[in-house]
Design a protein around this nucleic acid. Structure first.
Length: 269
DNA sequence: ATGGTGGTCCTACCA
């Protein structure tokens, strides 16, 4: 009895629909959460996904930027859309599904702002937006702790919180995604909601884990200057069911790849 | 070394 939930920042679901289908066909997760779909709702490619066995889908898109979606082989029920910082940015959608025991599991799919290049809220409004977004997420996490006990939170959180989540802790300390103000904020959000970082539970430090490698590198694999920006957290009642994970590093080497790779968690009991 | 590459959608913005 198991349930596998995956997350992948796809960087345009329309351009890379064939990669999505390949991942689903070869790996068969029950649920796949996508970020950066960059796809208005009316144009979401539901047809080929249904044909591949993923006939249940929720999507929240917009033109050009952002966008999240949840694809599933099992029936889904929409369980809300959070907005942050008063913006309709399509950065969150939630779904409910039933596990093999008929119990409800809620999946929160999240795309946290990248935050621009300069880690200073006065010089860079995008960094300020990221910090404000994190503040609101912490408040939500605190208030929802009980409700989220049987929830899974996945997505591109755009922060690599631990030393071995980046290729060089020292070189990255002043780089957006690994600055202390960001890593401390993410750790505070995790603590406020009593979330367990499922991937780090399975692969403890100091083992490096990366889910993203920049496009701006001629040989990403040899240089291996990656970051763990994508995460899967589980609520307190699910922590005991963490059974295994999959990190498809090979997908970074597929033709016309996303700069992120799929990450999956299996819950079982 | 202050670049580099890639997606969206038309010129610049985002990652």
């Amino acid at each position: 009895m198991s349930l596998t939930i995956a997350t992948w920042n796809i960087n345009s679901v329309r351009l890379r629909i064939d990669l999505v289908l390949r991942y689903l066909t070869e790996n068969g997760p029950d649920v796949l959460c996508l970020q950066e779909t960059k796809c208005p709702d009316a144009e979401f490619p539901l047809g080929p996904l249904a044909k591949a066995g993923y006939g249940h889908a929720l999507h929240r898109g917009m033109k050009g930027y952002n966008g999240v979606a949840i694809l599933s082989r099992r029936p889904l029920k929409e369980a809300g859309r959070l907005t942050f910082c008063g913006r309709e940015d399509a950065r969150h959608i939630a779904a409910e599904l039933l596990d093999d025991h008929g119990r409800t599991i809620t999946v929160h799919n999240l795309y946290i702002p990248a935050g621009g290049d300069i880690p200073d809220r006065d010089a860079n409004p995008k960094f300020g937006h990221k910090l404000d977004f994190l503040d609101e997420l912490k408040a939500w996490s605190e208030v929802g702790r009980q409700a989220n006990a049987r929830a899974v939170l996945v997505g591109d959180l755009n922060i690599a919180p631990f030393v071995s989540d980046v290729w060089s802790h020292k070189a990255m300390l002043n780089v957006v995604s690994h600055t202390p103000v960001e890593t401390e904020a993410l750790n505070a959000i995790r603590g406020a909601g009593q979330w367990t970082d499922a991937i780090r539970h399975l692969v403890p430090e100091p083992e490096p884990v990366y889910t993203w490698w920049s496009y701006r590198s001629s040989d990403w694999s040899a240089a291996n200057k990656g970051r763990r920006l994508d995460h899967i957290w589980v609520g307190s009642e699910l922590a005991g069911r963490i059974a295994g994970h999959g990190l498809l590093r090979d997908a970074r080497g597929w033709e016309r790849p996303s700069d992120h790779v799929p990450l999956a968690l299996t819950l079982s009991d």
